[in-house]
Amino acid sequence: MGDRILRPEQPGGSDVVLTVLEPEGLYPDTGPEQEILGPGVRMLQGHAKTSLAELPDALCAEVDGLMTLRMWVPAEQIARFPKLKVIVRMGVGYDRVDRAAAAARGITVCNLPDYGTQEVAEFAVLLAVSLRRGLILYHDTQRGPSPAPWAVMPSTIVRRQEVQTFGILGLGRIGVAAALRAKAFGYKVVFYDPNQPNGWDRAVGIGRARSTDELLAQSDVLSIHCPLTRATRGLIGERELRLLPKGAVVINTARGPILDIDALERCLRDDHLAGAGLDVIPEEPPVEPIPGLLRAYRDQEDWLRGRVVITPHIAFHSPEAWRDIRIKSIETMRDVLVEGRRTNVIPPESD
């Protein structure tokens, strides 16, 4: 255990009261948070709806611990928190926090690597299965004033699961959970993750590729599960997509900027790829004018009917996951800010 941060003794023997701020007002009260933090720590909710810039300077000056879900934490906002010691990103991804600016100030950054694992893994595999078994195809083509004939529709997107390889890019907690679920559907599962030790494939009971290119060349379904870092931003571009077998399907439930969505559109239009399921896009939420694949999807253009599913970054969602976000976030803050532990700490030198 590291040095305790809570209640350092002031001259005269009084204790310092630490202040934790959740600026988005996500929950109706702070009772559970206050109970977990315990005495000597004050839990506050802010009223910011879009950014930390909405918070008054006087409030920022009090804050020792900051918990954010949707909001970005850029360097100029970090500078407004002179007492800040810990930032907890209330989710798995931590690309919204300027970790270089935090490290320069000695501020610890944490995430929640173990929430929503089942939900995101299930969503990724269900996107693949619903596309590959034609559920989306027949749903899309039986709607509207001129539905398709009441019959089988020949399509390259429909395949038996057992004849396909399910490729997983990034085998962390969610990647492992997705691998196990894909195996249950009958897929041959292969992964690539240079950060996993030797033997990880045998532990999970799946195959291991030696490179991204080797993974792509055999993936009838590519499912992206790596974090967004300097190394993974733009990792899957047109060159990589064209390494996939013709008729492959791409699934992204990780982060939008990992995948070049314009290249994805080109590979779908010329039928190199059969389909795609996206829970994330490069800019969220999208702003007008909305270009490319998302515009074609919203306009229900005929060429992608039954081939593409786009959802608004909700793969994590369930009532249970929302509770996990709340409880695990405040437990992480308690561990690090109050007790000096290293729970869920993101090393500043990592990508």
Results as ranks from 00 to 15, higher is better:
Ala58Ser: 15
Leu26Pro: 12
Asp95Trp: 02
Ile251Ser: 00
Ile325Cys: 14
Val41Lys: 01
Arg96Asp: 09
Asp29Asn: 15
Pro285Trp: 04
Glu162Ser: 15
Ile36Met: 07
Gly2Cys: 03
Asp302Pro: 13
Ile157Lys: 02
Ala203Tyr: 08
Pro149Cys: 07
Ala296Glu: 14
Ala48Met: 06
Tyr138Asn: 10
Leu243Asp: 04
Asp351Ser: 11
Asp140Pro: 10
Ala231Lys: 13
Thr343Leu: 06
Lys328Glu: 14
Leu112Thr: 07
Arg210Trp: 07
Glu9Met: 11
Gly31Asp: 15
Arg342Trp: 13
Ala53Cys: 08
Leu293Arg: 12
Gly172Arg: 01
Thr229Ser: 07
Ala217Leu: 13
Val63Gln: 02
Gly65Trp: 00
Asp140Tyr: 06
Pro197Ser: 05
Gly237Tyr: 04
Leu337Val: 07
Ala121Gln: 03
Thr156Met: 15
Val250His: 02
Val63Cys: 11
Ile251Asp: 00
Arg4Trp: 09
Leu278Trp: 02
Val308Gln: 04
Ser350Ile: 04
Val88Cys: 15
Ile327Ala: 06
Ala48Cys: 11
Asn111Trp: 01
Ala75Arg: 07
Pro245Tyr: 01
Pro39Cys: 14
Arg80Asn: 07
Arg143Leu: 13
Pro285Cys: 08
Asp57Gly: 10
Gly247Thr: 04
Met67Trp: 12
Gly46Lys: 00
Leu69Pro: 12
Arg342Asn: 14
Ser51Asn: 02
Trp303Cys: 02
Ile168Trp: 00
Pro8Val: 05
Arg208Phe: 07
Leu215Met: 01
Glu62Thr: 13
Leu21Gln: 10
Asp140Trp: 06
Pro56Ala: 10
Asn195Gly: 15
Pro245Phe: 03
Glu301Thr: 12
Ile261Arg: 11
Ala121Trp: 03
Thr19Tyr: 03
Ser219His: 01
Leu84Lys: 01
Val17Gly: 10
Ile330Tyr: 03
Gly40His: 06
Asp271Ala: 15
Pro282Lys: 03
Asn111Gln: 11
Ser155Thr: 13
Phe81His: 10
Gln77His: 14
Val20Gln: 09
Ile136Lys: 05
Thr68Ile: 14
Leu44Lys: 07
Ala103Thr: 12
Ile346Cys: 08
Arg305Lys: 15
Asp335Phe: 10
Ser318Pro: 07
Glu320Arg: 15
Ile290Asn: 11
Leu268Asp: 02
Gly205Trp: 03
Ala102Gln: 06
Asp260Trp: 05
Leu222Pro: 03
Thr50Ala: 08
Glu33Ile: 11
Gly256Ala: 09
Val338Met: 00
Gly247Glu: 05
Ser51Met: 03
Leu180Ile: 05
Ala217Gln: 06
Val88Gly: 05
Lys328Phe: 11
Leu127His: 11
Pro286Asp: 00
Ile258Val: 14
Pro113His: 01
Leu6Ala: 14
Arg99Ala: 02
Pro347Ser: 02
Cys60Glu: 03
Leu126Trp: 13
Ala231Tyr: 04
Arg181Val: 07
Thr165Glu: 00
Val338Ser: 04
Asp15Arg: 15
Glu214Pro: 05
Tyr115Ile: 14
Asn111Gly: 08
Ala104Gly: 12
Ala121Tyr: 03
Ser146Thr: 12
His139Ala: 14
Arg255Gln: 09
Gln218Asn: 02
Val63Pro: 04
Trp150Asn: 14
Leu69Ala: 15
Gly207Arg: 10
Trp72Leu: 14
Tyr94Gly: 01
Asp201Ser: 13
Pro154Glu: 12
Gln196His: 11
